[in-house]
Design a protein around this nucleic acid. Structure first.
Lengths: 169, 169
DNA sequence: GCGAAATGCGACAGTGGTGTCGCAGAATGG
DNA sequence: CCATTCTGCGACACCACTGTCGCATTTCGC
């Protein structure tokens, strides 16, 4: 059901619960039996997606260059496909949600970008806010393209390449 | 009213007509008086936005390098802000809409990208579908960022730079 | 095979957005 | 100044989605 919700909501967050039940091959009753609320399903999917992101992000020690961490994170994100689209399609989607700390969304990433800049991987002419938005856009786009034409890893490679080139000094 | 619709729908296409009326500082009645339908408003906004895009795109003769046309078009799009977000946030939003020819959405752009590739501005390792999706993502992101931190022209510059670097051979 | 748990189905009221009215109060222009 | 036009307000029925329920059916474990 979470997969179905991610798949459907990745493209239209206002989609009805019926469409999700249909996609999940269960009745609406069953869906409601596991998630009392629309909000409950959102929270469950959010939590699950964040957990996967966390897991996927495990291999990134702080010792390695920040740029490699960003790259690793990007690849992991693309691998998650719809989940990542769900998470990052609209930055304000989860505003006020107790499970969505601003740490997840921004602070940690901003710090990473700043570190990458300090390490010389990001040019002085690149504002941090642009680097961040570009990063999420590439993540989103690569995940999106993976649903259409290109194999997942190819899309990930292209996204990584685009990011490196775009922010290079 | 069209401006209000663009501003609201740029962030949430499922937003109610009430919220648009509110944003436009008119009553819901007045809104309905000018646009009988939700669909009528959508069509009007679509048509108006496409017209602006067309106008803004006037300066691009086919004689100049394709890359410059793409660049010009990108800058013009960023300048349009919410209108462009409305148009390109979801590629399938206007599927089946008689005013949304696939020419606008894809074919013309694809041809432009192919021409840029022939002129050596786009590397062989860059799939056309990636270049296109990247292009729209940058357009969208630059417009989005313009609503937050950076001045419009700075965001446009960054988007252009990112695109050139990303697809360079 | 039998009992328990899970699922599907249909019905229900509640809710919020939609589209349509009529009417009353501006705003506009001659 | 008056007449025409535009606008706002409130009311209405309609519809899709939501959340809840009871009951029949299927599935699963033992």
């Amino acid at each position: 059901m979470l997969d179905a919700a991610a798949a459907v909501w990745a493209h239209d967050f206002s989609a009805s619960l019926s469409s999700i039940a249909l996609r999940a091959d269960v009745s609406r009753s069953t869906l409601h039996r596991y998630f009392t609320d629309r909000q409950a399903l959102i929270d469950a999917l959010l939590l699950d997606s964040l957990a996967r992101l966390e897991t996927a992000d495990d291999g990134s020690a702080t010792a390695v260059p920040a740029m490699e961490t960003l790259e690793h994170f990007l690849r992991a994100g693309v691998e998650m496909g719809d989940r990542v689209i769900f998470l990052f399609a609209d930055p304000k989607r989860f505003e006020g949600n107790p499970h969505w700390s601003s740490d997840d969304g921004d602070e940690e990433m901003r710090a990473l970008v700043d570190r990458a800049r300090a390490e010389g991987a990001i040019g002085a002419g690149i504002p941090t806010s642009w680097a961040l938005n570009l990063y999420y856009a590439l993540l989103y786009t690569a995940a999106e393209v993976s649903n259409q034409d290109l194999p997942r890893h190819v899309a990930a490679d292209l996204a990584v390449q685009s990011f490196r080139r775009s922010v290079a000094p």
